[in-house]
């Protein structure tokens, strides 16, 4: 039963990684850009929720309902004002710009909140679990997994089922030609980034309820998200879910054998995929 228990914990952890990775995967699929500030944005969203909860009488669900659209809006503005300029100058400049943004966000958070660790109070959800026979399933982990599946399904269906999504693919294929049928590539890219920021904010909030966080955690979050994306296959969202699960399972089983090898095992699986199956488990379909 230990095995099944570990399996369940691993899949739920994988759900969190996949939730982190969805936005990273979307931005790579549409714009071929990697946002190095991705993890820091998640941490920033967690702090925003802590602040809003502490300074107002708003209930948690309302705070989250404010934080997610706000992050989407920030994503839209960041794309139009910052990323779109750097994309014109090439991939290296985009990497540098997002790296700079990562440092700014980290240090801004450190300045504002000190290096103390925090958690988001989800009330009973924080610690609650139900027993399924001998297995303990945490409500939070299950909720995170459900959200990850829903977010990834949504982000997957949007480009194929909506006209805006189809235009996003058209712009991604050939922005010059798409402009001839009226597509403003900067607007459509900004919508992709808005979705990415909104989903990573959700990931940051779920993660902040699961375990404590501090301003310096962003890069580690980014690495897990990045590993989930690469293991699953760049630009493929179904793959991202699988990649998150593989990473989560690896870490959960490694922790059973030797707790100190948890992170190392995840990184080794990532390196093994890069070496032997660089296209990922589920290679890209057009986003």
């Amino acid at each position: 039963m230990d095995f099944v228990n570990t399996l369940v914990q691993g899949v739920m952890l994988g759900g969190l990684y996949a939730l982190f990775a969805a936005g990273l995967s979307l931005m790579f699929g549409v714009m071929r850009m990697v946002n190095l500030a991705h993890g820091d944005l998640a941490v920033a969203a967690a702090y925003l929720v802590v602040v809003l909860l502490g300074s107002s009488f708003l209930p948690l669900w309302l705070v989250i309902l404010i934080a997610l659209p706000l992050f989407a809006l920030i994503g839209y503005a960041t794309q139009r004002g910052l990323f779109s300029r750097s994309l014109k100058a090439g991939p290296l400049s985009t990497l540098l710009v997002t790296f700079g943004l990562s440092i700014i966000v980290q240090n801004g958070l450190l300045q504002a909140f000190s290096a103390d660790t925090r958690t988001i109070d989800f009330g009973a959800l924080n610690t609650g679990a139900f027993r399924l026979g001998p297995i303990s399933v945490s409500y939070l982990g299950l909720l995170t997994l459900a959200l990850a599946v829903a977010v990834i399904a949504g982000v997957q269906l949007f480009p194929s089922r909506t006209r805006t999504g189809r235009m996003m693919r058209a712009v991604s294929d050939d922005a010059d030609t798409a402009s001839l049928v009226g597509a403003n590539s900067r607007h459509l890219y900004a919508i992709a980034t808005a979705i990415a920021f909104g989903t990573v904010a959700l990931a940051g909030i779920m993660s902040g309820a699961r375990s404590s966080f501090d301003p310096s955690m962003g890069p580690a979050q980014l690495i897990f998200a990045f590993e989930a994306v690469v293991i699953g296959g760049l630009g493929s969202l179904g793959g991202t879910l699988a990649g998150g699960a593989v990473l989560g399972l690896t870490q959960a089983f490694a922790a059973q054998i030797d707790p100190s090898s948890t992170l190392l095992a995840g990184h080794l699986v990532f390196l093994a995929v890069l070496a032997f199956r660089p296209q990922g488990l589920i290679p890209q379909r057009a986003v």
């Binding site: 991604s172 294929d173 050939d174 010059d176």
Partner: peptide, 27 residues
């Protein structure tokens, strides 16, 4: 004004119908 560009330039990851439908975006 709408231009049919030199060399067609269809969107390669879109189907025939989806390609046509992009024309309706700002029609």
């Amino acid at each position: 004004i709408c231009l049919v560009p030199e060399g067609r330039r269809l969107f390669k990851s879109l189907t025939v119908e989806e390609n046509l439908d992009t024309g309706a975006y700002r029609a």
